[in-house]
Design a protein around this nucleic acid. Structure first.
Lengths: 344, 344
DNA sequence: CTCACAATTGCAAGCGCTTCCAAGCTGCTG
DNA sequence: CAGCAGCTTGGAAGCGCTTGCAATTGTGAG
């Protein structure tokens, strides 16, 4: 493997000049620059990032911490982050902290402190103030996506407002018997989003003077299969059946639709369903949803970060609300003319 | 940020001794070791991995190249890889090469050569011999998962045998009108798996003396939505309808089931469906499938890699066949007693 | 034609750690 | 009690690059 020294020799220049020529920093004559580049190309020189990082302090590497890479939202964000980073010449170090508090702990307290990353993107992860301080202490900017991160920059959607809009959509169609499928309490801990969305939903109901029935507040684990099981209980149980379900995620909405079909319920004639996400699968089910462009959020986070890194300016923490849009498809409609309480 | 020098001072030891004490290499008295560790803990010392890597040549970092992190198989593998790596104290640099040949090219020709990774795991990626040589030239072990990688170690399932088994399962149930949903040609390029599975399927058919009808060989993009569209054409078209469909992936099998339901076909009474993967969603649909433990494959790849790295022994390239298992659920059954060609 | 000043260039000092090597010790053996 | 092996230790040389600083070269003005 050729080093910068070899390039310098071949180009008949000093190491310093070659370094400047290849990195583009500092003043180098056109001729020298060309020579250096040619020599580097001839030798197939690829700079050692370790040495470079050690000497310069810049890593060209950002760490991404996600709760799981197997779930729609997270993997979408990672795709956006990854593409943007790659195009900028940055490496992406993935910290998938699924499976255990201890793993999360070691990532936060060991891995991230090894000075390997220039910045950290935390997706739907609620960090304690201490954890954030620790990260900020090593002078690495942090940006959070989809979760509150006091003291750091964040990019997130208006979860409460969105949920309210989803509820309002159903209400405006004429529904009054609306169920809400939220996330398990476990999810509320880390990214609190279930609670926020449920809050927005209740807000919409209250505004319309509708009752929020406790038996229609069910929860699942944000997966299709989990929601399916939960929806079967809701729709097949002995309680009166709602005419509409607002699920806190598209995957849960889809699980609900599948369960409804099992009971012979037609969507949307017998049951309206609305979700949140903009999941690719939504189209197959004609799912009405609120599209949050997860990939776009990831890309934005990176752009924000890189801008700060290159400028060197320690941009202050700022909160950005990412826009969303209501996508109306065929899973929502006016409620059945007459609603009779059916027993499964 | 404290450096090893600070630790040395506080512990009243030399830098060299502290380094040995903390890394566990070399002989250090118990007393010194303890002192060093205490001092390090007191100061909150975290070694700089750049410096460490530069000096030692070991990175504690492996690169993972995947076609996309958004698809079931890949994200499953990444989860397995990630957990195993994290537990071993390694970083995982993710190279998500979705979206463009050029991105793939830059990853292979720039990123991976920067000596930042100790090893490379390539998932379902067919590398040219030149690309492999290039990687091997920088003395980095490579292991491939789910794709052929001439010259490198690989972990893969017996795609042909599996497909044959899936076909046989249907045949043994009494089916003779079996369709096969394979991957788009585009996928065949990079990981050739569609062709291999199709080959296995044809093998099973041939063995049973059954005809492989071209109009029943359809393809999709490995997604539920893609398969759904494709299956609608297959099942709703004017050609005679098969009594069973073998899809090359669970997601495609699910898309097929959804399409079948649209046409009022009952699974498995009217149509049997079998997939390959072991997708979490399979349970909801009662999908019979061949379970390949993707997460386990990822974990195994890492263990294999680390064993080689730690030993220092340049383990020869070896091919490992990962075991799979047929999971029979409710989506496959004997064909309808009398099969009449229905027109949609 | 000479001089001040700017653009280039090279020297060399690190970046923070690992590790070779030799020196210092300890505890035995003869 | 000398002599030696074996364990610990510290010194110091890098790992391969970046960058401050000073030296060199080139340029236009006077």
């Amino acid at each position: 493997m050729p080093g910068i020294k070899d390039v310098a020799e071949r180009a008949g220049l000093s190491i310093a000049t070659v370094s400047r020529a290849l990195s583009g920093k500092g003043n180098v004559s056109v001729r020298s620059k060309q020579r250096a580049q040619t020599a580097a190309a001839d030798l197939g020189f690829v700079p050692s990032y370790h040495a470079s990082s050690l000497a310069s302090g810049r890593n060209h590497n950002v760490g991404v911490v996600v709760p799981s890479v197997h779930r729609w939202f997270f993997s979408s964000v990672v795709e956006g982050v990854s593409a943007t980073l790659l195009d900028a010449g940055y490496d992406l170090t993935l910290y998938n902290v699924s499976g255990g508090e201890e793993r999360r702990h070691s990532v936060l307290n060991d891995f991230l402190l090894r000075k390997r990353v220039d910045a950290v993107i935390a997706v739907s992860l609620e960090l304690s103030t201490a954890e954030i301080q620790q990260l900020l202490a090593i002078h690495r900017p942090i940006v959070g996506i989809g979760g509150p991160l006091p003291g750091a920059s964040t990019i997130r959607i208006d979860d409460s407002g969105i949920a309210e809009a989803a509820g309002r959509h159903l209400i405006q169609l004429g529904h009054s018997k609306i169920a809400h499928m939220t996330g398990d309490a476990a999810y509320d801990k880390d990214f609190r989003l279930p609670g926020t969305r449920q809050g927005g939903f209740k807000e919409a109901m209250r505004d319309a003077g509708l009752a929020v029935r406790p038996e229609w507040q069910v929860c699942a684990d944000f997966t299709i299969q989990g929601a399916y099981a939960s929806a079967r209980r809701l729709l097949g149980g002995s309680v009166e059946r709602p005419t509409a379900v607002f699920a806190a995620s598209d995957e849960m909405a889809i699980g609900t639709i599948l369960a409804a079909r099992d009971f012979g319920l037609r969507i949307p004639q017998d049951l309206s369903v609305i979700g949140i996400d903009g999941h690719e699968l939504g189209e197959v089910f004609g799912l009405t949803t609120i599209d949050q462009d997860a990939r776009g959020q990831g890309a934005l986070a990176v752009r924000r970060l890189l801008a700060g890194l290159e400028d060197g300016a320690n941009t202050a923490a700022e909160d950005t609300e990412y826009p969303t849009s209501l996508v109306i498809r065929s899973s929502t409609a006016v409620p059945p003319a007459e609603t009779v309480a059916l027993q499964a």
